[in-house]
Design a protein around this nucleic acid. Structure first.
Lengths: 336, 336
DNA sequence: TTGAAAGCGTTACCAC
DNA sequence: GTGGTAACGCTTTCAA
């Protein structure tokens, strides 16, 4: 009576053999109704749940690999943009995808502990997050390949963009469109946001105003924008750490009667769905490319742990729409 | 040499015992380096992949339930809106979520076959799709609880909305706002779309124009809208089967110089993120509610197959924004 | 219709 | 360090 009940417990309680219990569980045709009911009752009484591992082992099904993906599903559409091609790519490779929403650091560590402790997966995809070297060593020791996406990680193959360069590019475009006093609405602690911020400082100078949004959401963006405009009413352009922040900023500006792009120019980051109809100029990043790369990379590594997976630096571009001034016709500007 | 290689094969090839192979695989400290390398080489040579079921059975880890969710991840944000609370709710219940993207009928059947054949899950969530009675019987026989979301299904607990009534409500609102010649841009074969169409016909009459979009996307919506306007230039309102279709229609109308809401009113369906900033009037459905309900329902059923799970009919409401005429101030209208 | 017993591929304990 | 050898919990013949 220590752990979960097994078919032996059920068999004993129902006064039958374990083979009979198994038959009942598998809806085998030739079982007397009374015995069946007795077994079912015993199952219910004991709260019996068949052990999946034992089942699969005995039944001899295929040993399908499983990949765990950790991502901050959050409010943002980013993780979803990555998830879809990931799911599709893994399915094509006959790999199951177990999705874990990681809202905070603690959940992340707990999830990683579990994955490791229970040997719950044959591969790991990290979306927008990294792991320390000890962790990486643990996974290496457990022979579980790990790849990262949207976040570089020492020693792990990763698909990333150059967030600094991307933000520098955004600032340059804003300048070329006539902006003189550019500010930055930063995101949170995530590395990508910190890099974007660093890129902004590098391009706009240390004196340029930077206001962090409490959360990388519309609400956070609007609030941060309010603080920014109160402190620096003369700002004429805002480079934002994400589209959500940018939309919030845009709303706040409208609320204050500051027209975009004439009075103030606004640049987002991501190019989420519908940003084109909103008319937000933004830095486009290859969201689907992240997912596709991760699927291919982790599948290759699962198939052959020695496979050579090359990290990639995906290209970004700025898409000029209605929140930045027009140089000529709306165009797409190449990135780095 | 019939199936996959086992540790016995590795042991034989490396000239060691299976216990040693196991030690190597688990990064046990006390293994001579040479033996370790020999084992590793044998593993590589034979392409050995440890059997997860056997591992877990022997290691005696927790028998964590697994729930499979089938959803058309598609272009729409709908499935994602459902997925997040589902992932969160299941995680809280200690249940793993395996996500399957179901782009078409064939994939669905194949996936269900696999799930059943391999007994790959302890619970199933169907998003925006149903299963036939035979299927349902198969899952019942396998004692795998199934719940549906956004799609009613005979004999299965489901969370749904009344799509007919919702679309009738949309038509009514449009009428109250002065629309006289209302048309419908329909979605695909999915039941929800068919119901919405039926609701439209019921409210607007069989003579009202209905044009199906090739795909329930912006492109599909724009194309269908073009066809509609060519055939019926006098239309003054369009009730759309989804937000994506509505946005496409809105774009097409703008392209033709038809101003919304003055010349033509447009109503969406879903209330996806950012529809408020686009200003689309739409029928809001409780996307997150679907996911939360499914998590709770399937978790309850996993814990106790006899649990009473009540189907729910979630409320909808129409949100009036800038693509419908204003009655007074923009307001939220209660649904049914 | 049912029971006994032989695996399924690992892990882990116990000797050597 | 390393090799036997019991488990682990279930499915599946094979007889009865």
């Amino acid at each position: 009576m220590s752990g979960d009940p097994t078919i032996y417990d059920i068999a004993a309680r129902a006064g039958v053999g374990i083979a009979t219990v198994s038959r009942v569980l598998n809806a085998h045709p030739r079982v007397k109704v009374e015995t069946r009911d007795a077994v079912l009752k015993a199952c219910a009484d004991l709260g019996f749940r068949p052990n999946r591992a034992a089942r699969r082992l005995a039944a001899g099904g295929p040993n399908r690999p499983r990949v765990a993906a950790l991502a901050p599903l959050f409010a943002t559409a980013f993780a979803y943009g990555v998830t879809r091609p990931l799911a599709a790519g893994l399915a094509a490779a006959g790999i199951d995808l177990v999705l874990y929403d990681i809202p905070d650091r603690e959940t992340k560590q707990r999830t990683l502990d579990r994955l490791l402790g229970e040997r719950a997966c044959e591969g790991l995809v990290l979306c927008s997050m990294g792991i320390g070297p000890e962790r990486a060593a643990q996974f290496a020791a457990a022979r579980i390949p790990v790849v990262a996406v949207d976040h570089p990680c020492d020693g792990l193959p990763a698909a990333t963009i150059d967030n600094r360069a991307a933000m520098r590019l955004a600032v340059e475009v804003l300048r070329e469109r006539g902006a003189r006093r550019i500010a930055h609405l930063a995101g949170g602690d995530a590395l990508a946001y910190r890099e974007r911020r660093a890129g902004f400082v590098a391009a706009a100078g240390a004196a340029a105003p930077v206001v962090p949004a409490e959360t990388p959401t519309r609400e956070g963006g609007a609030a941060a924008c309010g603080i920014l405009l109160d402190a620096h009413p003369d700002i004429d352009a805002i480079a934002c750490a994400s589209d959500a922040i940018a939309v919030g900023a845009l709303e706040e500006c409208r609320r204050r009667g500051l027209a975009a792009p004439d009075r103030i120019q606004i640049m987002g980051f991501d190019d989420q769905p519908f940003m084109d109809v909103i008319g937000l100029s933004t830095v486009r990043q290859p969201v689907a490319g992240f997912g596709a790369w991760a699927a291919q990379a982790v599948a290759a590594l699962c198939a052959d742990p020695g496979a050579a997976v090359t990290p990639v630096l995906l290209p970004v571009s700025v898409v000029e729409r209605q929140t930045t001034r027009t140089p000529a016709a709306p165009s797409r500007r190449r990135g780095r």
